[in-house]
Each structure stands twice: as C-alpha cells, then as structure tokens.
C-alpha cells in the first residue's frame, strides 16, 4: 500500500517545522497576484476555489486513502445550497457558506455508511453511481435548480454588511483568499493531529489499525464528512463569486479533474496540492482558450505518463528538494 502514497516517504514522523517552508511562499504569491494582476482577479478567485476543492479531496484521497469518482457532488451541492438560499432572500454570504457546508456535510453523513465499507472498486462505483443519481436529481428538479440552464438570478449581500462585491472582483478575491487561508490552516491542524495520524495509519495498513484499537470506520466516516463539508464551502464560494450555479459543478468531469489535480499535486501533501491546483487552473485557462481539444489530449497524455514518471507529484518534488536542502 505504501507505493500508493509516495508523499509519505518519511513514514509517520512529523516534519521538522510546524509547517512546510513552501507555505509562506504560496500565500506571498497569492497576495502578490492581487497587486500584480488586478485585471485577472476573477480567474484568481476561481483558482482559489479550485485550491479549496483540491484540499478537501486531498483529505479523502491523500490522508484517508479513499478514492472517489464523485467528489464534485459536494462542490455542486454547496453551490446550489448557497444559490438557492440567496434566491429565497437570505443573501448574506457567510450564511451561504454555512448552508453550503451543512448540506454537503449532511449528504456525506447519509452516504458515509456505503462509502466507508467495501473495496476500492465498490467505492469507485458507489461514488460514481451516487454522483450520477444526484446529477440526475438536480437536472429533474427544474423549479429548484434551474435544470440545464443553471441558476444566475440571485443577489449576494455585502460581506459582513460592509464590503460590497465590486465589479473588478476585489472583494470576491480577498474573501476567497481568507476562506482558503482558514481551510488551509484547519486542514494543517487536522492532518497533524492524532486523528490525522490515525487516518494515515489506516491508509498505510487498514488491517493493523483495528488491532491497535483504532475505530477505523468512524475515522473514515468523519474524514468523509469533513471533506464533504469543505468541498461544500468551496462550492458556496464558487456560486457567490461567479453568481452562478450549474449542473457541470457536480458533473463527472469535475470529479475526474479533481482526482488528477490532487494526484499531480502530490496526494497527502497540503502545500503540493495547493500549488498543483493553482498551476492546473492557470494552465487550463491558458490552453483551453487556445484550443480545448489539445488541452484534453494533453491532459490525458500527462495523466497516463504521471502514473509511470512523476510519482509523488509536486509535493514529492518539494519533499525531495527539502531533504536535499537540509543535507547540504
């Protein structure tokens, strides 16, 4: 199993620093982008949402070792949850975030008994099947979700009643950056806590953990719930900052995409996954405006190659570089 997770070269030992030295660089780059690219804040906000979504899925795949083909369900539910709430007149953005997190957490809670049990293949199928089910449901409930047209006719009130969402997207970017920072810190805390270590133990050896008295099913269920809730926050943020919620937010392509993002970023490595998501968002935006077909072709080829070449992703590179630096 350990071949599955190349990022865990160091076993269960904690890193020397309380956080990776790359972390300040990530945040410096994000803050700098606010001043350097004031005309591209909408893209930067979208990328922040992708980073949050990737971190939420990394908790599941990278730490708990659960591979899902339907994680976008939670992003979509969060988006619809906050958009529908806003259409009903509750336009406060923080309330929307809470609603997005709650509905996704609730659905994750209902699903966790079937996801937690079973082999990798049953998990893939169940997550895929449930995702198709929810996609179909959202498509059918036109009155609530707008069907294939999506939802665009909702308002978002000023943040904390003070900062209105402006046309250039400054408020949206800073709002998304703050949420990202909170999610990043929370996940750092969770994954280095005893609970996070127990998750890694389950991932590395799911037979031995019950033998030392670790409640495996409950740990996995909690991580699924938490991961769903964070994806819901990302979805709510996406709906509020783009003023749109649509079916493709919970579609299969997004679910498959996030598996790739997390794997290319380096499963189980929070900084690596964040950088991977940002890079993915940038490259996708640049290439898909040039030619979406070549983008898809390139993506497929990179994915196939990644299985053979870049095991460990960006996070693996950071770790290798970090060890090299310490040795010198």
């Amino acid at each position: 199993m350990s071949a599955l997770n190349p990022a865990s070269h160091g076993g269960l030992s904690k890193p020397a620093l309380p956080f990776s030295p790359v972390t300040p660089l990530i945040f410096a780059a994000l803050i700098a982008s606010y001043f350097l690219f004031p005309n591209h804040l909408a893209l930067a906000t979208q990328i922040l949402v992708l980073m949050i979504f990737a971190l939420s899925y990394d908790l599941l795949q990278g730490h708990a070792g659960i591979v899902s083909l339907g994680h976008a369900v939670f992003l979509g539910l969060g988006a619809y949850g906050s958009a529908i709430l806003a259409r009903w007149g509750f336009t406060d953005p923080l309330l929307g975030l809470a609603a997005g997190a709650s509905i996704s957490a609730l659905v994750a809670l209902v699903l966790s008994p079937i996801v937690v049990r079973g082999s990798d293949f049953t998990r893939l199928l169940v997550t895929l099947g449930v995702a198709s089910l929810i996609h179909e449901a959202a498509n059918r409930m036109r009155d609530l979700t707008g069907g294939a047209d999506g939802l665009a006719d909702f308002e978002v009130a000023p943040l904390l009643g003070l900062f209105a969402f402006d046309f250039e997207g400054r408020t949206a970017f800073l709002y998304a950056l703050t949420v990202f920072a909170l999610v990043y810190a929370a996940l750092w805390r969770v994954t280095t806590s005893p609970f996070g270590l127990a998750l890694r133990g389950i991932r590395e050896n799911s037979r031995r953990m019950p033998a030392i008295g670790s409640p495996v099913a409950r740990h996995l269920a909690v991580s699924y719930l938490l991961s769903g809730a964070i994806a819901g926050v990302g979805g709510a943020l996406l709906a509020q900052t783009s003023r749109f919620a649509s079916l493709d937010m919970l579609g299969f392509e997004r679910s498959a995409e996030i598996v790739m993002v997390v794997t290319l970023g380096g499963t189980g490595h929070i900084a690596g996954v964040s950088i991977g998501a940002a890079a993915f968002g940038l490259v996708k935006d640049a290439l898909s405006t040039v030619s979406p077909r070549y983008w898809q072709l390139g993506l497929g080829v990179v994915l196939m190659a990644s299985v053979f070449l870049a095991r460990g992703g960006i996070g693996g590179l950071i770790e290798r570089f970090g060890r090299f630096g310490r040795r010198a």
Binding site: M260, T263, Q296, L297, L299, G300, M304, S306, V307
Partner: peptide, 12 residues
C-alpha cells in the same frame, strides 16, 4: 488515473 487519461486522450 491511467485509464481515465487514456479515455480522455482517445476522446480528444
């Protein structure tokens, strides 16, 4: 990952 990459590439 490999097989989904193959499916993407062939579709493209």
């Amino acid at each position: 990952l490999f097989s989904i990459g193959l499916a993407f590439a062939l579709g493209a």
